[in-house]
Design a binder for these strands. Structure first.
Ligand SMILES: [Zn+2]
Ligand SMILES: [Zn+2]
Ligand SMILES: [Zn+2]
Ligand SMILES: [Zn+2]
Lengths: 121, 121
DNA sequence: GCACAAATGAAAATGATTTTCATTTCCATG
DNA sequence: CATGGAAATGAAAATCATTTTCATTTGTGC
């Protein structure tokens, strides 16, 4: 079940910041690790399921992954350079909760992301 | 230069909310309009360049478009039956804005969705 | 009509991601 | 040590959105 291949995780760690599946794969190849692209994809998916890594989308649509702290949080992403800041989401937690209550929903979750251009772009 | 095909624009309008290029194309086909997929892609790109249309990414990576300035809103979706309610997003608008300001971001947008189980499920 | 630029769209190419499926690696049990 | 089944692996094929190519059509001024 847990296909969270540790070599993939450690490579993603080493990559620092965000990396796509293809990039992780190429990196491992360059470092002489023997692994298949399929396994990299599966490992990353698994890590996302286990909430060990975060996944986002680059502007061109390619999925990018990175290690993520345990705490639930949200991102502010720059559309220009891809820079990402973790932001505090207290307000949104309350909002989601109250909207759900108001409409009689239970077991509520949410997604939220803010994007724009950072000061450097 | 301006390939902002008016038929594509009007279809996107009619679609309401977000639609992908493929969806716009299928919609036009269903309505008996004769148009090529390539033209739909080119028209949407052009509309984005002219800032008439916004582009975002769905979770699966597909690009989705919507008219700029169309009433912005958020959804509460039931994981069980798929029922969807439009919810009021004032709190989240403020949150996104203040987070962006705090980190010096401009031209800010956001996505947010709440999901859970409705009272019937 | 004629020339020439822009628009169109079918088909091929691209590139990320997923699926298939045969093979290999693990692991528990005899 | 087998050995048998389950999980993991990866090469190759399939999928699917998007882009590119290129031949054809359309529009516009002369
Ligand atoms: Zn930036
Ligand atoms: Zn949250
Ligand atoms: Zn429901
Ligand atoms: Zn909003």
């Amino acid at each position: 079940m847990s296909r969270s291949n540790p070599r993939v995780l450690s490579t993603l760690e080493r990559a620092g910041g965000f990396a796509s599946a293809q990039e992780v794969y190429r990196l491992m190849q360059r470092e002489g690790e023997s692994i298949g692209l399929t396994t990299v994809y599966r490992a990353l998916q698994s890590l996302v399921n286990d909430k060990i890594v975060d996944v986002l989308r680059r502007d061109d649509g390619e999925a990018i992954y990175r290690l993520c702290g345990e705490a639930h949080h949200h991102h502010l992403v720059c559309k220009g350079c891809g820079d990402t800041v973790e932001i505090e989401g207290g307000a949104i937690e309350k909002w989601a909760k109250s909207m759900a209550e108001e409409h009689g929903f239970r077991e509520v979750g949410h997604t939220a992301e803010v994007f724009g251009l950072c000061s450097k772009c």
